[in-house]
Design a protein around this nucleic acid. Structure first.
Lengths: 203, 203, 203, 203
DNA sequence: TATGAATGAGTCTTCATTCAT
DNA sequence: TATGAATGAAGACTCATTCAT
């Protein structure tokens, strides 16, 4: 802990615990114990458990809704864009494996969070959706893509990609695989998902 | 309310609340209030909140791992079986829309539940996996299915199907769609998933 | 403490402490300690400190606004009514010497209490004010009472009577009188107040 | 803010808040926030919340016990002195409308304050009481004033005058009068009180 | 079978105060 | 003179559980 990095330490510890156990099951006492500080200090810096949580939640919500790291290049065929999108989304999740569970959990657990998420989601998605929607219409019209909706495509993509990060703890256990085994099995799933998606879009 | 009507009512109410809000956010006080009985009665019948919960959790875990309602007929081509499996799984979830979130949540939140789940999962899956695994090997060998693993297939299936029941609350909100709209959009996803899966398996 | 008179004991102890020290300075821990019970028990019976307080506050507010024990007889001259009223009010306060301070304190301290008091006050006063107002008008018109308002009369009465119960603790101290001395000095103030009031009303 | 401007600002702000809300309901945090300074600064200057309060309390206690701004002229008839006293007391209160409630509240709430007040009260009153007491005896002996005690007279005076500043918040509410209405009703009460007092002293 | 009373541990929060700088 | 960090005690409240009936 550097020159009074307490505030930072608290945030980091809180993030770890919140993401691991969720809001309800993480007490400020837990955080303080782990940080090694007085419990009041948490309130001193963040005023309330909820305020501390909210900052962390929103930071992770942004990750949750990140589809790409850099904007998609324009002059790329539609299906190629979908493939890039899927892989990129997968890579982002790979770096934040626990985030999907955390966000899903908190949203399901506290409906109030839906509100907090709305603008984050829109901001993330509206950069990408209108363009794709238009391109998809063209592709369908010209017979290069089977008749479907962008909503369906994105839902499939999200499902495939997120599934990999939601179910593994279960899979590890029921398949008696080690953490490492599962991880390596999953590494290749990113490309596989992209392939599944693109294949499913061919007429 | 019949003879042991109370006990039953408590279980049912508890199930509803636990599935809706999760273990941590459901207090025995809540349950008692909703049931309209004394708070002690819950402990009288079930010894502890945790024991009451455990029964309910395991019941729902069984649902969560149910892939089919009836055993698959034997003399059906492999790909057809996969199609049936996917659709059947989807239909089961459709009847228990809140279960996936509940189970995932509880597992992620309380690692102890992994243990409880292991045998349930194995029992469900081992009825089906060895056969399919063998058939898949044959199909691949004979060039009718591209080279892949059953693990991959089932993970894709689970991801696609469960995604539909995990994300809609989010989708509803960020897309400003009504509950009904989303529901109807999803109805057709069952067959779509089967199609995606099967397509993705073709060589 | 009779057959589980806990609830009653709590109310009584709480009333004593609240009246003595006020809401802010009485902790539920204090009450529990004095009662000799677990602190949770207070919440068990009354849900919250505030609810426990509110009942007590309103009970005392009713006393605070009680001017007469029995309705005034009709066929009594106006000035005689005022005299009876003043003496009656004084007697009521004599039996609840600490109430005025308590009520004044809580109102001044928590503006929200004004709302709680409104209806109590109106109920108490509106039984008596309209009649007196009309009679006063007649008396003035016929020259038997000097020109004034009922508001002034009642404010004078309240001031004189309540003053006796608000300042004595101070008087006791600065005059180095014993509690008993002051008390006896005050006993006679009831009639004195009535006299002052009536005298002041003569033309 | 001049050299020691902070210290002064803190005192002034503290006084305003303490008088408005009382000791118990005013936190040093509140004061610091309102002043716009660090919370520690209050402790730095005044060692403790209580010491800060004590100075303020005593200053206001002096006001509370002030009966006259200038010493009464000697060669004035007794009843005229009483009249002047009453009006003068009323005028002082008019300039410090919130003080009576504050002092009464703190005394009733914290018995320790009685001690602090004793000498202040004595100092204020003993400048005036012995003389008046002697003059009253003469007046009574010569039949110009009815038989009473100075204690009674001063208590009546204090009651009438202080009542005006203690009850208005209540009156405003239960009579549905505006702040301004009540204020104007009360403006004239000063002279009225003097009249009531003097009248009540005539034989 | 069913209940109300009672408890103890734990949660979040507020607050006055202290300390090093 | 002035500050931010940190603390410990206390406050109200919730909750699962136990006990006697």
């Amino acid at each position: 802990m550097t020159d009074s990095g307490m505030e930072q330490t608290i945030i980091e510890t809180a993030e770890r615990l919140f993401v691991e156990r969720g809001y309800a099951l993480t007490s400020t006492t837990d955080i303080a114990r782990e940080v090694g500080c007085n419990q009041s200090l948490i309130n001193y810096y963040f005023r309330s458990k909820e305020k501390l949580f909210q900052a962390i939640f929103e930071k992770n919500a942004i990750i949750f809704f990140s589809l790409v790291k850099e904007p998609l290049e324009k002059n790329i065929p539609f299906l190629e864009k979908i493939r890039i999108l899927a892989e990129s989304h997968f890579q982002i999740l790979l770096q934040h494996a626990k985030v999907p569970f955390f966000i899903l959990n908190e949203i399901g657990t506290n409906p109030k969070q839906m509100e907090a998420i709305k603008s984050i989601a829109k901001q993330s998605l509206h950069a990408i959706i209108p363009v794709l929607e238009h391109e998809l219409a063209v592709e369908i019209a010209e017979g290069r893509v089977r008749n479907t909706t962008l909503f369906d495509i994105l839902l499939s993509m999200a499902s495939l990609n997120l599934g990999v990060f939601l179910f593994p703890p279960i899979l590890e256990n029921i398949m008696d695989l080690g953490d490492a085994d599962v991880r390596s099995l999953l590494q290749q799933r990113g490309k596989e998902h992209a392939r599944i998606l693109v294949t499913s879009l061919l007429p």
